[in-house]
Deep mutational scan, measured.
Amino acid sequence: MAAAAAAGAGPEMVRGQVFDVGPRYTNLSYIGEGAYGMVCSAYDNVNKVRVAIKKISPFEHQTYCQRTLREIKILLRFRHENIIGINDIIRAPTIEQMKDVYIVQDLMETDLYKLLKTQHLSNDHICYFLYQILRGLKYIHSANVLHRDLKPSNLLLNTTCDLKICDFGLARVADPDHDHTGFLTEYVATRWYRAPEIMLNSKGYTKSIDIWSVGCILAEMLSNRPIFPGKHYLDQLNHILGILGSPSQEDLNCIINLKARNYLLSLPHKNKVPWNRLFPNADSKALDLLDKMLTFNPHKRIEVEQALAHPYLEQYYDPSDEPIAEAPFKFDMELDDLPKEKLKELIFEETARFQPGYRS
């Protein structure tokens, strides 16, 4: 834990890192770190609560700039109880001085990944967590956004079992017609939660990839272990087919990539493993919904509104309290091709509203 900075004593240090967030945020305490930044909790002297502050230093890398800009653009436009918001952003007053960006968010005690390492969940908890994931996802999908990296560590939890989806750095506007060349190379989302079509096709992607990830998360809540822990690309596919069985001819016809289709045709026939054999203690309604989410063919996979209306979630289902976005989200430009200098300018502009004396 960093010592509390005395008023006016300059930035606090946390594990050798400068955290320049005073005077409003003090009493910093280390939480963890990701690929390009550290997260601390801090005391907000204005709202009198502890908050989470993520320090991001992305400006050396085009990919990190892209992810940072995506996350900020999306989260500043989203407003939903099951999606983490941005409360404040701290950065230098000029673009030349801006080396880091500090993002202030609600402090959540833990995440689903940490929880599943230590606790076996009751059916009631599984049901409530799944409902909140789908409630947040309904809003995301209504904005025409794909999260693309749903996994237990991106689901934040607090002691009252509130759940918030975080990390929109890989999110995209849904565009089933656009052929994202190089899709697989830039697709760094965790393999275990990846839909089979991501490994088999490169053309376009749809909201059904997020539903697949939610199915993987439900299976993990039922058993405290990942359902498809593939060691590499082909191993991942083999794990999936080992449980779902061989795809039907109709399902194979959806695979545009001939090499991928021929690979699947070359494999020995596998039978589907019954879900109640894998999860003998699970609620039968939970397994019915799991089956509809972990469907090989993305066109037959359940959609988020149908999933919310499934009998497993009937005690929570309330369409009048499951809000959607006001308007579909649009990125003005494809960020993939922009140089990091341009992305830095866009991050600077996007964060201006939090600067003292800002006038829109």
Rank of each mutant, 00 (worst) to 15 (best):
L157G: 05
L137A: 09
L116Y: 03
R50C: 08
Y317P: 00
E305A: 13
P280C: 07
L121Y: 06
R70T: 00
A5Y: 00
P298W: 06
Q62H: 15
L335Y: 03
F129T: 10
C161S: 15
T94D: 10
E71A: 15
L184D: 12
G242D: 13
P268A: 00
S122N: 14
I31Y: 07
I347M: 10
A4L: 02
R261I: 09
S248C: 13
P268F: 05
N47L: 14
I347V: 01
L222M: 13
C216M: 08
A189W: 09
H147R: 04
N144D: 00
R353E: 09
A219C: 10
G16C: 10
L290V: 10
S320I: 09
T110E: 06
M38N: 15
A309F: 04
T181N: 12
E71I: 01
V49H: 04
T206H: 08
L308E: 02
Y30S: 11
H232M: 00
T68C: 01
V214N: 03
N271M: 08
H178D: 10
Y102R: 05
D291Q: 11
D100L: 09
T160F: 01
D210I: 03
A260W: 02
A174T: 13
D337N: 15
R67C: 07
V51S: 02
S246M: 09
E322R: 04
K292L: 11
A42C: 07
I255Y: 08
I90N: 14
T160I: 11
F129A: 02
L338W: 03
R50I: 03
M221G: 06
P323A: 03
M333E: 02
K207E: 01
P280A: 00
P229N: 04
L346M: 13
F228A: 01
N257V: 06
K330Y: 06
G37M: 12
L116T: 01
K207P: 05
K285A: 10
G169S: 12
E349P: 01
D111C: 09
D235Q: 11
H80A: 01
V214Q: 11
K73R: 00
G10P: 02
Y36C: 15
T118P: 15
S57E: 12
M199Y: 04
L289E: 03
S360N: 11
G357R: 11
G242E: 03
I56M: 14
E334G: 00
I255M: 02
Q306H: 15
I95N: 14
L218A: 07
K207T: 13
G37L: 03
N45G: 13
P152R: 07
V188Y: 08
D291C: 08
Y312T: 12
F329H: 03
F296A: 03
Y358W: 07
G182M: 04
L107S: 03
F329R: 04
I198Y: 03
P11R: 12
G8P: 02
I243H: 09
I255Q: 07
V173N: 09
F354Y: 14
Q62E: 09
S208K: 04
